Deep mutational scan, measured.
Amino acid sequence: KNALMQLNEIKPGLQYTLLSQTGPVHAPLFVMSVEVNGQVFEGSGPTKKKAKLHAAEKALR
């Protein structure tokens, strides 16, 4: 199970927000955030999926 699945089991129905998309078309950088218990966690990556995963990993720490 990855961090997204684990976080969804603990806190179902979380909303992930796209904060920014920067970089060239062939190498974009997405920044996504998720709010858990009033705290906002951000993650970035080359795809929205990876950015969401990194945000979930930070939220689980």
Rank of each mutant, 00 (worst) to 15 (best):
K1Q: 13
K1W: 10
K1T: 08
N2D: 12
N2Y: 03
N2K: 05
N2I: 01
N2Q: 06
A3D: 05
A3K: 12
A3I: 13
A3R: 07
A3G: 04
L4Y: 15
L4G: 03
L4M: 13
L4T: 09
L4A: 07
L4N: 05
M5S: 15
M5T: 15
M5D: 15
M5Y: 15
M5P: 00
M5W: 14
Q6T: 13
Q6S: 13
Q6N: 07
Q6W: 12
Q6D: 08
Q6C: 12
Q6E: 15
L7T: 00
L7S: 03
L7W: 03
L7Q: 01
L7K: 00
L7P: 01
L7C: 02
L7G: 02
N8V: 05
N8E: 11
N8W: 12
N8D: 15
N8R: 15
E9L: 14
E9D: 11
E9F: 09
E9Y: 10
I10K: 10
I10M: 15
I10R: 11
I10Q: 08
I10N: 05
K11F: 15
K11W: 14
K11V: 13
P12M: 04
P12Y: 02
G13F: 04
G13I: 02
G13K: 13
L14Q: 06
L14N: 04
L14R: 07
L14F: 03
L14I: 15
L14W: 02
L14P: 11
L14D: 01
L14V: 13
Q15H: 10
Q15P: 08
Q15V: 14
Q15D: 08
Q15E: 10
Q15W: 04
Q15L: 07
Q15Y: 06
Y16P: 04
Y16H: 01
Y16E: 03
Y16A: 03
T17F: 07
T17N: 09
T17Y: 07
T17K: 11
T17R: 13
T17P: 01
T17S: 10
T17G: 05
L18I: 08
L18D: 02
L18T: 07
L18G: 03
L18E: 11
L18H: 04
L18Q: 07
L18P: 03
L19P: 00
L19F: 06
L19S: 12
L19K: 14
S20L: 08
S20G: 11
S20Y: 09
S20M: 09
S20I: 05
S20N: 11
S20H: 08
S20V: 06
Q21M: 09
Q21S: 10
Q21L: 08
Q21K: 12
Q21E: 12
T22S: 10
T22M: 08
G23Y: 02
G23R: 04
G23K: 05
P24I: 05
P24S: 11
P24W: 04
P24R: 07
P24Y: 05
P24L: 08
V25D: 14
V25L: 11
V25F: 08
V25S: 14
V25G: 15
V25C: 13
V25R: 15
H26S: 12
H26F: 05
H26E: 15
H26K: 10
H26G: 08
H26R: 09
H26D: 15
A27R: 14
A27Y: 07
A27W: 03
P28V: 03
P28I: 02
P28G: 05
L29P: 04
L29T: 13
L29C: 12
L29I: 12
L29Y: 11
F30H: 06
F30N: 04
F30L: 03
F30M: 05
F30R: 02
V31G: 06
V31N: 09
V31K: 14
V31C: 13
V31Q: 15
V31E: 09
M32I: 09
M32N: 03
M32Y: 15
S33D: 03
S33N: 14
S33M: 11
S33P: 01
S33E: 10
V34E: 02
V34Q: 01
V34H: 01
E35L: 07
E35G: 05
E35A: 04
E35S: 11
V36Q: 00
V36E: 02
V36R: 02
V36N: 03
V36Y: 06
V36C: 05
V36A: 05
V36D: 01
N37I: 03
N37V: 03
N37W: 06
N37E: 13
N37T: 04
N37G: 10
G38F: 02
Q39H: 10
V40N: 12
V40W: 07
V40R: 12
V40Q: 12
F41R: 02
F41H: 07
E42H: 10
E42G: 03
E42C: 10
E42V: 09
G43A: 06
G43R: 00
S44C: 11
S44P: 02
G45V: 00
G45Q: 02
G45Y: 00
G45W: 00
G45F: 00
P46I: 08
P46D: 12
P46E: 11
P46S: 12
T47S: 12
T47K: 05
T47H: 01
T47N: 08
T47C: 04
T47F: 00
K48T: 07
K48C: 08
K48L: 10
K48N: 02
K49T: 13
K49A: 13
K49C: 11
K49V: 12
K49P: 07
K50W: 07
A51G: 03
A51R: 00
A51W: 01
A51K: 01
K52V: 04
K52G: 03
K52C: 09
K52Q: 12
K52W: 01
L53V: 07
H54D: 14
H54A: 13
H54N: 13
H54T: 08
H54F: 09
H54L: 10
H54K: 14
A55S: 03
A55Y: 01
A55F: 02
A55I: 01
A56D: 00
A56C: 05
A56K: 03
A56S: 04
A56M: 01
E57P: 01
E57R: 08
E57V: 07
E57H: 08
E57T: 08
E57F: 04
K58V: 13
K58R: 11
K58N: 07
K58L: 13
A59I: 06
A59T: 03
A59M: 03
A59C: 10
L60F: 05
L60I: 10
L60E: 00
R61E: 14
R61D: 07
R61V: 15
R61L: 15
